[in-house]
C-alpha cells in the first residue's frame, strides 16, 4: 500500500508493496507511471520508467518463486536532490554477483541478454544508464534508477512538507 515514512523530509517517499505474483506487475507499472507523470516527466520518460519497473518486478517475482519467498516486493519513489529516484527491493535469492558485475561493466548487451536471460536488467541499464542493480547485504536484490531533474518539467512540485 502507498504510505510515507515519518522520518523527515529527506526520507519522505511513496511506497507500494505488491505480492510476489506476476499479475501485480501491471499495478506496479501504473503506480510508477502515475508518479512519474505527476512529477512532470514527459510521456516517453513515463514509458521508460514503466518498462524499468516492470523488468525489475519481473525479476523479483522470479527470484521470490525460486526461493519460495512470500514476502512482498517493495517499490519506492522519492525525490533526491530534485531527481526522482525509484527502487524495487525484493527478498529473493539475490542477483548472481558475476552477472551483477558483468551488467555493471556493460559486458552484457540487451541483444546478448535476450539469449542469456538477463535482458530485463540490461534493458533497465539501457534506459537509465546510471541504474544500480545490487545484491542486498541480508538477502534479495535492489534495483535503483533515477530520472534526472532535467527530464521533469520546470513546474515539477517539490516534495512537500506533510505538516
Amino acid at each position: 500500500m502507498a504510505s510515507r515514512t515519518d522520518q523527515g523530509t529527506a526520507t519522505e517517499q511513496l511506497r507500494l508493496s505488491i505480492p510476489p505474483e506476476a499479475d501485480y506487475i501491471a499495478m506496479a507499472r501504473m503506480f510508477s507511471g502515475s508518479v512519474a507523470r505527476h512529477f512532470g516527466c514527459d510521456e516517453d520518460v513515463v514509458e521508460d520508467v514503466k518498462v524499468a519497473v516492470s523488468e525489475a518486478c519481473t525479476n523479483s517475482v522470479k527470484a521470490h518463486r525460486d526461493t519460495e519467498t512470500l514476502e512482498p516486493i517493495e517499490l519506492l519513489a522519492r525525490l533526491v536532490d530534485g531527481d526522482l529516484q525509484f527502487e524495487v527491493v525484493d527478498a529473493g535469492g539475490g542477483i548472481d554477483t558475476e552477472l551483477q558485475k558483468a551488467i555493471s561493466d556493460g559486458a552484457v548487451t540487451p541483444a546478448a541478454g535476450l539469449y542469456e536471460g538477463s535482458l530485463g536488467l540490461t534493458l533497465i541499464r539501457s534506459l537509465f544508464p546510471g541504474a544500480e542493480i545490487v545484491r542486498n547485504e541480508d538477502r534479495g536484490t535492489t534495483v535503483r534508477f533515477v530520472v534526472p531533474a532535467g527530464q521533469m518539467s520546470a513546474g515539477t512540485e517539490a516534495m512537500p512538507s506533510f505538516d
Partner: peptide
Amino acid sequence: TVWWERALGNLARLYLSNEGVAAI
C-alpha cells in the same frame, strides 16, 4: 491535498478510465 494524495488519485483514475481497463 498533498502531492501523494493527488498521485494516488491519478492511479485510481487510471484504474477507472478506459485506458486503465484496456491496460488490464
